[in-house]
Amino acid sequence: MLAITALAVIRMRSLFAVVILFGIYSLLTAVLFVVLDAVDVAFTEAAVGAGISIVLMLGTLLIAGRRADADTHTPLLPLFIVVITGAVLVWGTFDMPHFADPQDPAHQHVAPRYIYDSLAEIGIPNMVTSVLASYRGFDTFGELIVVFTALVGVMALLGIPERRQSRRQVSEKTGPEFSGPILTIGASWMIPFIVLFALYVQFHGDFGPGGGFQAGVIFCSAFVLYALIFGIELTYKTVRPKLLILTSASGVLLYAGTGFVSIILDGNFLDYNVLSNTPKAGQHLGIFLVELGVGITVASVLILIFFSIVQSRKRRYQMQPDNHLDSQVRE
């Protein structure tokens, strides 16, 4: 199934169809992850791949045009390279451990400690959360900073999203007139539940599948749905971009701050044992704060990226070469 969808993506020239097919592909991947026991990952892939990245790509298509031209050069050379590379990789797999083999080296090193000792050391049932936020808290901090940096990059390229100052410019097509009664009523029933579900995923991540990354993504999808149904201007009224810029930074600060507090309390950076009277209570508190920071940052970064891409459609950018040409023409 995945292979067929991937092939269809290569062959199609209608970019709209390519993007929608990519959404189907992501949803199939998420199903595969559930089968392979990775429930947390499936969660994220379903919300990111089939939800947000599709909306971002469609937003780009609005600007970049829907159809791709036929490829000019012959496909033989790339095909040759791809087949050779693939054959070498397949040759390499003959030394790999077989699928789902319990003796696989990947399961021998640190994994047994995570699996058998994490309940005693961290005190929460979901191993993925305890590895993510506590054992490998440094990694997650790095990833969060990468997400934040991507936001800085997008805003540097496309400009900071702003609410338009004069109210008159706001087009009349906002609110219920924008998309008909069925969508409006349907969405206004769904959005509160999506937000509620995001909060549940955020705060229940210790016990079941969930956590800051998933919750942030789901939270963002609620706002994207709101913007798609009710128009972007109303969404700006609900969440101000300036506020989001503040929250996206404060999530990173909350994460780093938790680390520094544990240094002040005589522990190592991100060592939660010292945060409270007993190590387990400290771990609980630390993981809670860190996941909250992750959730806040991921949600506000993704909403801001969405805003930037939507706004870039109307925005005009000063181009150096164009100005140069214009002045030459005037002379």
Binding site: G49, E143, V298
Partner: peptide
């Protein structure tokens, strides 16, 4: 199942969309 790859990929997906 081994939780370590799940953690790595979970964060990689979100970094990927960014």
């Amino acid at each position: 199942s081994n939780p370590l790859p799940h953690v790595l990929i979970l964060t990689a997906i979100v970094v990927g969309v960014a």
